[in-house]
């Protein structure tokens, strides 16, 4: 798709805003609609748009399959690790109130961490799905 000048320029303009919106949805999920899952999908859709415009090879240089594998696993690890951390600090598994001095601050921190984990895994898996399917055949060939 190297000749689609308008698409390329528009995509370049849009992608930063999509990424920014994904981060907003991720970190504003406590206050408005949204959360890790939606943010992960939106973040992934920015990368998928990039892949559609600039090709799979270029996109894989931006986020490599190895990085995706590590990200997908580390999201679950962050989530589970938060739960274990709560246990180490004397609470039950995923009892966030133990994470900080006051229960509310602990809950806030815990929710922040697990949403981060969800977002990371969802982003990585969505891009993985797309890489997996589009890598079967080069659309430009």
């Amino acid at each position: 798709m190297h000749d689609h000048l308008i698409l390329r320029i528009i995509a370049k303009m849009f992608i930063p805003f999509i990424l920014l919106f994904a981060l907003y949805v991720q970190f504003h999920g406590d206050y408005g609609p949204g959360g890790g899952f939606q943010a992960g999908v939106i973040f992934a859709s920015a990368l998928i748009l990039y892949t559609l415009i600039f090709g799979l090879e270029t996109a894989m240089r931006v986020v490599s399959p190895t990085a995706l594998r590590i990200l997908a696993a580390s999201g679950v690890l962050i989530y589970g690790g938060t739960g274990v951390l709560c246990m180490l600090r004397g609470g039950n598994f995923l009892e966030y109130s133990m994470l900080a001095a006051t229960p509310l601050a602990g809950q806030h921190l815990g929710i922040f961490l697990i949403e981060l984990g969800v977002g990371t895994t969802v982003f990585a898996v969505m891009v993985m799905l797309f890489y997996g399917f589009s890598g079967r055949k080069d659309p430009s060939s």
Partner: peptide, 14 residues
């Protein structure tokens, strides 16, 4: 995560 793993195992990553 499991879904991602399955896709990775079945299709590879391009």
């Amino acid at each position: 995560f499991t879904a991602g793993l399955s896709i990775y195992a079945l299709l590879g990553l391009g």
